[in-house]
């Protein structure tokens, strides 16, 4: 068969070739061994754009087995277009079983949320990461931030957070809120709302982070100690909208704000659509 007639059915299991998967797998093992440290990897050009989850897709592809049950969410929802697109990609290239139920999934690829339901031992949560470097917006140069991590020189981050307090009376970071892992590396938890930060620590699931364009992989093994950066007089607070879900009534979930008419009326609904559905059915 002519290579030019290649169609999707002829791609390898989970799309990536075996050399690439081995390279990613080696990086993943090092990432797990050095929690919170960003391992460089030779990210490949994927058949979807950078910024659309190419890092997460490569990590998922390297981890996926034929026995897995995959869930893909974006903004907490299974039916957002990019989640649909990524789920379909793995159905096509790996013939993998998919689910919307958090507790049935063995691998969950996510963008911007950690599911509301408690994750369990054996589950893997794969985060799509746009900018893996927590210090990037304080220092744009990779050569500099690498040195700062090496020397554990995180003063700049504390200064930034403290300036927030001086200016706004509180820390003005609402998502991608930086954390410190096992007392060593400062890590970007990806743009999850800080409401989700407490779920990073001591979680029984394995959390893997993939940044395709920036060519970095990092990880939080299960039961890893993760602390959101704060100050004694301004302790970290996992905040959310001061409402209950207008559909299921939950008062402890992260909410989307939906504008419902031209008068600007609004309602609040769970961002985790599977969690909301289960509560409605209960």
């Amino acid at each position: 068969m002519n290579a030019r007639q290649k169609n999707t059915t002829e791609y390898n299991f989970a799309y990536l070739d075996e050399d690439t998967k081995r390279m990613i797998r080696r990086a993943l093992l090092k990432a797990v061994a050095i929690p919170g440290y960003q391992v460089p990897f030779a990210s490949r050009e994927m058949p979807m754009p950078y910024g659309w989850g190419t890092g997460g897709v490569q990590v998922t592809a390297a981890c996926l087995t034929p026995d897995d049950v995959l869930k893909v969410i974006d903004q907490g929802a299974d039916d957002t277009t990019n989640a649909v697109s990524i789920r379909k990609f793995f159905q096509r290239t790996a013939d993998v079983a998919v689910t919307e139920a958090t507790q049935d999934a063995t691998i969950i690829q996510t963008r911007h949320r950690i599911p509301e339901a408690a994750l369990t031992e054996g589950q893997i949560l794969v985060f799509q990461v746009p900018i893996p470097e927590p210090l990037r917006f304080l220092e744009p140069r990779e050569t500099e931030t690498r040195k700062m991590h090496e020397l554990e020189e995180y003063g700049l981050m504390h200064v930034k957070l403290y300036e927030d307090i001086a200016k706004h009376g509180q820390i003005a970071t609402a998502y991608a809120y930086p954390v410190k892992v096992e007392g060593r590396y400062v890590m970007d938890p990806s743009p999850i709302p800080k409401f989700d930060n407490p779920k990073l620590s001591g979680n029984p699931a394995l959390m893997l982070f993939g940044a395709g364009r920036e060519q970095r992989i990092y990880a939080l093994p299960p039961h890893t100690n993760v602390v959101s950066l704060d100050f004694e007089d301004h302790p970290f607070e996992a905040s959310k909208a001061n409402h209950n879900c207008d559909i299921c009534g939950a008062g402890d979930t992260y909410l989307d704000e939906v504008i419902t008419d031209d008068q600007g009326s609004r309602m609040f609904v769970c961002s985790d659509t599977d969690h909301c559905r289960i509560r409605q059915e209960a």
């Binding site: 075996e18 081995r22 797998r25 797990v32 061994a33 087995t65 026995d67 394995l206 093994p221 299960p222």
Partner: peptide, 15 residues
């Protein structure tokens, strides 16, 4: 497929 299954065991062991 076999290397995928094997890697998951290795990853789980390291994690």
């Amino acid at each position: 497929r076999q290397s995928a299954t094997a890697f998951r065991a290795a990853l789980d062991a390291m994690a």
